[in-house]
Design a protein around this nucleic acid. Sequence first.
DNA 1: ACCCAGGCGGGCG
DNA 2: CGCCCGCATGGG
Length: 283
Amino acid sequence: MAGIRVKWFNLKDTFESAQPLTFTSDYFPEESKLVYVEGDSIIEVVQDPSKPDLLRVSGTDPAAAEASAKLRLRLGDDMAAIHEVIATDDFMARAIAAYPGLRLTLNDPWEATVCFIISQFNNVKRITQITRRLMDRFGIGVEGTGLKSFPTSEMLSHASERDFLDCGAGFRAKYLRAAADYCTNNIDLNRLRAKEYPELKEELLQMTGVGDKVADCIALMGYGKLEAFPIDTWVKRILEKTYFPGKKMKVRSLHEFAAERWGALGGYAQQYLFHYGRNNNLQ
DNA sequence: ACCCAGGCGGGCG
DNA sequence: CGCCCGCATGGG
């Protein structure tokens, strides 16, 4: 296994940045290893601290494993160019300097939908907990391992609200129930890949339990629409404190501000704001 | 005990 | 429309 050459990529920071990858896969710090399920096989990605610019990727089919890692970890992104565009001020420069290897990830649209429905009014630990229970209970085991695949919408369409409650979903159980039915019977999330961001977001907003923030998260991390700029409580607080001190801003205004400032790379700017702000206790 | 967490839908003015 | 409120659950 030759491995993949990377620059400005940090597996651990990326894994820890509260993306669907965080909720659905395992990271082993002592081995600097990410393990996730792709279809019916296991993919392992290792970033040895002594050789951080060479990723070792393994799987049943080595070529397919590398292709998967490149896609899901967005290894083709030109981070030097992205850093340059989103480093609009000192705050962003500090965020980039703190986590220069932080990347967005590309996740399955349905997985992203489930993860971010669960994420509302919730915390990262519990989002992970609920997601793992769903996988454990409704996913399909991968042969020779203890891991399970992420259940499809069809598989979850057979789950009851009680089942989701038992996984700890709380008031989001009815949203998950509705989404599983909707994505099985009324819409094919994979068919939305061809749509541009504004139209895609409109489609996603049709789902009960998917509002402005969750729709942007799905667009960004499920479809790779880099202009999407999810505004959650953290991002809102950080934007207000950094760019509008003393003011309380409306989400609508902040969307306009972000679009103006970071444009087509708003999603990356948001991920750096979020991760840096959250990990450095900026409020 | 009390507070909050990657928000959303519904109801009211 | 915009604003306000309740909401399940579990960890700090």
